[in-house]
């Protein structure tokens, strides 16, 4: 009669396979909404930059006022500086300049001010293992939310 493998050995092997195959590479998940002057932004980008300037910057695209980003593996949680580059459409179309092919029409956009991107003071604290949620309401003038 063939010798049976004890159950605990099987369990141990499965455990090793599970641990080595994915539980080790942690990712951060963050989602939310972005409004600009009360209107959901049509398209834009949002980035989460470590506040201390270390590695682990990541970002994604805002579509129809919403974003949902999974960070690359191995990114540490912690304090982040948030930069949002987004625009709302005015509804008008304007011609694109050279060297775009003549006759190219593009959307006229109003872009969010530099206080949300180049000189951003928006912050977020990202936690590991939870669905982080941050909603941003941006305005053309006035104080930073």
């Amino acid at each position: 009669m063939a010798q049976r493998i004890p159950t605990w050995v099987l369990g141990f092997l499965c455990g090793i396979i599970l641990v080595s195959s994915g539980c080790g590479s942690r990712v951060l998940e963050v989602e939310g909404s972005v409004e600009f002057d009360g209107v959901a932004v049509a398209s834009g980008s949002i980035s989460f930059e470590p506040a201390d300037g270390s590695s682990g910057e990541f970002g994604g695209i805002i579509t129809d006022g919403k974003y949902k980003i999974t960070s690359p593996p191995g990114v540490e949680p912690g304090a982040r500086k948030v930069r949002i580059r987004a625009a709302r459409k005015t509804g008008r179309q304007i011609p694109a300049g050279s060297p775009s092919p003549p006759g190219t029409m593009v959307d006229e956009l109003v872009v969010v001010p530099a206080k949300y991107n180049d000189s951003s003071k928006l912050t977020a604290h990202l936690e590991a293992g939870v669905a982080n949620r941050f909603d941003f309401k941006l305005v053309s003038g006035g104080p930073i939310p």
């Binding site: 980008s45 910057e57 694109a96």
Partner: peptide, 16 residues
Amino acid sequence: NTGPNSTTPDNLRQDA
């Protein structure tokens, strides 16, 4: 602005 191969989108000309 961002590190190599960042997942943050580049800012480009609207029709390019």
